[in-house]
Write a protein that binds this DNA or RNA. Structure first.
Length: 800
RNA sequence: GGGAGUAUAGCUCAGUUGGUAGAGCGCCUGCCUUACAAGCAGGUGGUCGUAGGUUCGAGUCCUACUGCUCCCACCA
């Protein structure tokens, strides 16, 4: 017998340990078995875990368990993304240090140590959440093996000509002192000032007014632009203007991009103040002037302002312009500024020698991949396509940082040539290892590449990383495309995009066939629950220990894909009720199944009705699940389950209790259908609530099915039923409901007797077959039947 | 400015191929019914954002508009 109360803490722990010990979820495909492989998101190891993690991983989890129950071999790997800037930023903040102020190897060791600590928390969370990924066979994005795979990828793309090394304007973070990629930008509304400044025409007392928000860029001014159709300023074209305070002259050129009615219609171009400057530099072949260094400190170009930080120089230069009567007016404005997502610092554009992966010339191919992938929900496709269409920068993969994968590259000191490592020697660290042979020019002296790779250059290889855990090198691409890439919508332009690029370039194939995109869990005020922000009260561990993993999963399973959801505890209360109901319904049904072994019997029509309804529900459920409509599948399942409890069980209750009145065969018929449907229901609920369903299943059904775990069994195999019986049975339920209504309105007990019920129906055979059940459930004294359109007239309540 | 999502009961939301508006919570009225009072039965509550259109029939499809949210662009 099952205990009266369900003790979720003990039960969940018990089965988690059992699954672990028995290796229930280990990937072990049988011959010809269909494989369902998941490119699991490796959590970014950079801070606290939040409930958003729980919900998105639960979606993946539910799909993994569903596919197992469908008989597929599920590969559900796990890994940690612990390389790169996110982890570095976390370590710097936590220890109040700056990477560039430390010994490189000391900083790297510290990162490894901190990452390892954080990973323990993730491990614990995924285990107590009942997640069925392979937690004990994981990859780490900083491991030696990962570095090997990542360096190989680099060499492969370099060979194929997708990667190039060039001095070029890049997006630069002066706080992190590294180049960053377009996808790492945030937009912030910042207060600023539009400064109208006098540029004197060379050799004249007249001046042109230039409006700028970035006066500190004046020393890097290379020219001034006006629109070619601007009549008002046409007289300036071809003349030279004197850059205020700094005193050097720049030419006035024309370009269509200048908006005639914005500011004075005269724009200064500095290399580089913004994106447009970058465009102009290329288009007009302008000189490049850098007025600040890696850390955002003004260079000698800035004269007396040398040594100031950009933000300070701005004020100082304005003050000086005022003194020299070169400032006409100042307008405060609020404008959008691109900032670095990791630190919030406004992004600069600087010219640096960097490694790039060419994406701009392959836009079409990448766009096509967006069309070829299956997106769930479908609307997420547009975000991918939109991003690809709007790409402006090639993917800069070098970072002037420390904790990351090295480039397997040296530069020859003799001729400057790039020397690459041999693939068989990987992984290598160019700072320690040396090329084995001299350069073709004869030189034996090499400078290592000090930069490390962008974290996404490695994360974009997760299909290879996770497949490497099981297939070993070389075999990975036979399992590509993988079945599923799951992630939240913020990663479409980042992780999804980069992985598609890499897969196309390496294999000429899509990395996966399906994408399942979840939404964010937001806090009450609608803000995103960022893992690095930690703005929620309840930690995932607290939620699970308070409500159980099953209830938490129920909550997550009910969320719509792709949509942000406000974190609310209501759904947890519903889940608790459902858990309780599953427990009690199981207890009740099983109390009539002691010693019962299912065997084929002639079923009473109402029992057949139940099985037909269940079969219909199950096929609907599977249909929804297979198209990642998890919430809808759960919804249908729940509806059926409550109906099963409140109607079916109530109707057959008396038959199970009193075979002396109803007959033994009739009792067995009820036993058969209750056995079949409860077992089937446990299986359908199991992806959502794996612990309680396992507890009941192992207690009652596992032996009969010779199964080691519910999660190694399959969904019920029920032959396609005749659904027309469903309508007939529904009439019976309708009669019961009419009787209940009458009693409820009369405010009497459900046990109160009803003198008579007059039933009109065209399915009298069916209804008559359940007469004894009906009499018992309704406490009816007399029933009359008449053929005709369905109607039930409930007689008087008998006063005791 | 470009793209997308969303608007349904007091609240949170579901609504599949177009076919009589749903669930939970809340509120109200009852019921200790040999699984469950952490339960059960019943009830209250909605011109489905606005205006048109297609259709025998529209919450669902089409057009326009409005509110909210997100992504991209916008740094002179």
């Amino acid at each position: 017998m099952l205990e009266k109360r369900y003790d979720f803490l003990a039960v969940e722990q018990k089965w988690q340990d059992y699954w672990n010990e028995q290796k229930i979820f280990k990937f072990a495909p049988k011959k010809n078995q269909k494989v369902y492989s998941i490119d699991t998101p490796p959590p970014t190891v950079n801070g606290k875990i939040h409930v958003g993690h729980l919900s998105s991983y639960t979606h993946i989890e539910i799909m993994a368990r569903h596919k197992r129950m469908m008989g597929e071999a599920v590969y559900f790997p796990f890994g940690y993304d612990d390389n790169g800037l996110p982890t570095e930023r976390y370590v710097e903040k936590k220890n109040k240090i700056k990477a560039y102020e430390m010994q490189r190897h000391e900083f790297i060791e510290l990162c490894l140590k901190e990452a390892h600590e954080l990973e323990k928390d993730f491990y614990k969370l995924y285990k107590t959440g009942g997640f069925s990924c392979e937690l004990d066979n994981t990859y780490s994005s900083i491991s030696q093996n990962t570095q090997k795979i990542s360096q190989k990828s680099f060499l492969d793309l370099l060979e194929k000509g997708y990667i190039y090394h060039a001095e070029s304007p890049v997006l630069w973070c002066t706080e992190c002192r590294t180049a960053v990629a377009q996808s790492e930008l945030d937009t912030q509304e910042l207060e600023s000032v539009f400064n109208h400044i006098k540029f004197y025409i060379e050799g004249s007392k007249k001046f042109a007014t230039v409006a700028t928000t970035r006066p500190e860029m004046l020393p890097a001014c290379v020219c001034v632009f006006v629109n070619p159709n601007d009549k008002k300023n046409a007289h300036l074209v071809g003349k030279n203007l004197v850059v205020p305070h700094f005193g050097f002259s720049v030419p006035v050129l024309t370009d269509d991009l200048v908006q005639i009615d914005k500011g004075s219609g005269i724009v200064m171009c500095c290399t580089f103040g913004d994106n447009v400057d970058k465009e102009w530099q290329r288009k007009h072949n302008l000189p490049i002037k850098e007025c600040f260094n890696n850390g955002g400190i003004m260079t000698a170009l800035a004269g007396e302002f040398k040594g100031m930080h950009i933000s300070k120089a701005r004020g100082a230069i304005i003050a000086r312009l005022k003194e020299e009567d070169l400032l006409i007016k100042q307008e405060p404005i609020i404008h959008a500024v691109a900032t670095h997502e990791r630190c919030g610092t406004p992004i600069e554009i600087a010219v640096k020698k960097q490694w790039f992966i060419d994406v701009l010339t392959h836009k079409k191919q990448i766009y096509q991949a967006g069309l070829d992938l299956n997106w769930y929900p479908e609307s997420m496709r547009a975000r991918f396509l939109n991003w690809v269409e709007n790409l402006q920068w090639n993917w800069c993969i070098s970072r002037q940082r420390f904790f990351g994968v090295s480039f397997p590259v040296w530069f020859c000191e003799g001729c400057g040539k790039v020397i690459t490592a041999k693939k068989e020697d990987l992984p290598i660290n160019p700072l320690i290892d040396k090329p084995k042979t001299a350069c073709a020019c004869g030189s034996k002296n090499f400078t290592p590449e000090y930069d490390v790779m962008d974290t996404w250059a490695t994360s974009s290889l997760t299909p290879q990383l996770s497949l490497d855990l099981i297939t070993g090198e070389g075999l990975s691409d036979t399992m590509i495309p993988m079945s599923l890439r799951p992630n939240a919508h913020d990663n479409i332009r980042v992780w999804d995009f980069y992985t598609v690029v890499k897969s196309l370039y390496h294999f000429g194939k899509l990395p996966w066939t399906d994408l399942m995109i979840s939404g964010f869990i937001t806090s009450g005020d609608g803000g995103k629950l960022g893992k690095s922000k930690g703005n929620t009260d309840l930690t995932p561990q607290e939620v699970i220990s308070k409500y159980s993993a099953d209830v938490t999963r129920y909550w997550a399973g009910g969320l719509s894909l792709g949509r942000d959801t406000c974190f609310a505890l209501d759904a947890f209360d519903n889940g608790k009720k459902l858990l309780n109901k599953i427990w009690n319904a199981s207890r009740f049904v099983l109390s009539f199944l002691e010693g019962y072994k299912p065997r084929a019997v002639k079923l009473m029509p109402i029992d057949e009705w139940l099985i037909a309804k269940f079969e219909k529900l199950q096929s609907k459920f599977i249909e929804f699940m297979d198209r990642y409509d998890i919430a809808l599948a759960l919804n249908e399942l729940e509806k059926f389950f409550w109906d099963f409890c409140d109607n079916y069980i109530e109707i057959v209750k008396d038959r199970l209790y009193k075979p002396e009145i109803h007959g033994e065969k009739e009792k067995e018929s009820a036993q058969f259908s209750a056995y079949t449907v409860l077992n089937g229901l446990l299986k359908l609920f199991s992806p959502f609530m794996p612990h309680i369903t396992e507890e009941v299943y192992m207690h009652a059904f596992a032996q009969d099915e010779n199964a080691k775990s519910l999660h190694m069994s399959l969904y019920a195999n029920i032959k396609k039923q005749d659904y027309s019986i469903i309508e007939k049975g529904n009439e019976l339920v309708a009669i019961v409901q009419e009787i209940r209504k009458k009693k409820s309105l009369a405010q009497v007990s459900m046990k109160a007797k009803i003198a008579s019920v007059a039933i009109k129906s065209n399915n009298l055979d069916f209804i008559k077959s359940a007469e004894k059940d009906l009499i018992a459930v309704g406490s009816i004294e007399a029933i009359t039947y008449e053929k005709g359109e369905f109607f039930a007239e409930i007689g008087e309540i008998v006063k005791e």
